[in-house]
Amino acid sequence: NQASVVANQLIPIQTALTLVMMRSEVVTPVGIPAEDIPRLVSMQVNRAVPLGTTLMPDMVKGYA
């Protein structure tokens, strides 16, 4: 099973992502693949992302 990127904390809207905000976890449905974590650093979320939420491509500006 492929690991996805999951929020390690509440990430407020417009926040630039850092490594400490994300973790990898095998979840359903599958979100952004964990191997993309380095690419996500400094990208902004376009909505508030609660703790434990799987990051989906449409939540990160410039990802999809």
Rank of each mutant, 00 (worst) to 15 (best):
L10W: 13
L17Y: 00
R39D: 06
V5M: 01
V60W: 02
S24A: 15
V30F: 13
Q14H: 15
R39N: 10
A48M: 14
V26G: 04
A34S: 14
P29T: 05
M22E: 03
R47C: 11
L10V: 13
I37N: 00
R23P: 04
L17C: 04
V41H: 00
L10F: 15
R23K: 12
P57V: 05
Q44Y: 13
M59Q: 03
L17K: 00
T54A: 06
P12T: 07
R39G: 07
L17I: 10
I37Y: 02
L10A: 13
V30K: 07
Q2N: 11
Q9I: 11
P33W: 10
A64K: 13
T54F: 03
L17Q: 01
Q2M: 12
D36G: 05
A7I: 04
E25D: 13
T28C: 10
N1G: 15
L10N: 15
Q14P: 02
I11K: 01
V20H: 13
P38A: 13
S24F: 06
D58V: 08
G62V: 04
T18H: 05
A16K: 10
I11C: 03
A48I: 13
A64Y: 05
I13L: 14
P33D: 07
P29E: 06
P29K: 05
M56Q: 13
N8F: 04
G62L: 06
A48V: 13
I13N: 15
M22L: 13
M21Y: 05
G62C: 12
P50L: 10
A7T: 10
Q44D: 03
S42G: 14
E25M: 09
N1A: 15
M21K: 00
G52T: 01
P29A: 03
T28P: 02
G52L: 04
Q44T: 14
L10M: 15
A3W: 08
V41D: 02
L40M: 05
I32H: 02
N1F: 13
I37V: 07
P50Q: 13
L40I: 12
V45T: 14
D36R: 09
A7L: 03
G31T: 02
A16G: 08
L40G: 00
S4M: 02
I11R: 01
L17H: 02
A34H: 09
I13T: 12
M59L: 05
E25N: 09
G52Q: 02
M59T: 05
P29D: 06
M59Y: 13
V5L: 03
G62F: 07
A48P: 11
L51F: 15
V41C: 10
V27E: 02
S42E: 10
L10E: 09
D36N: 14
V26M: 11
N1Q: 15
S24H: 08
P12M: 07
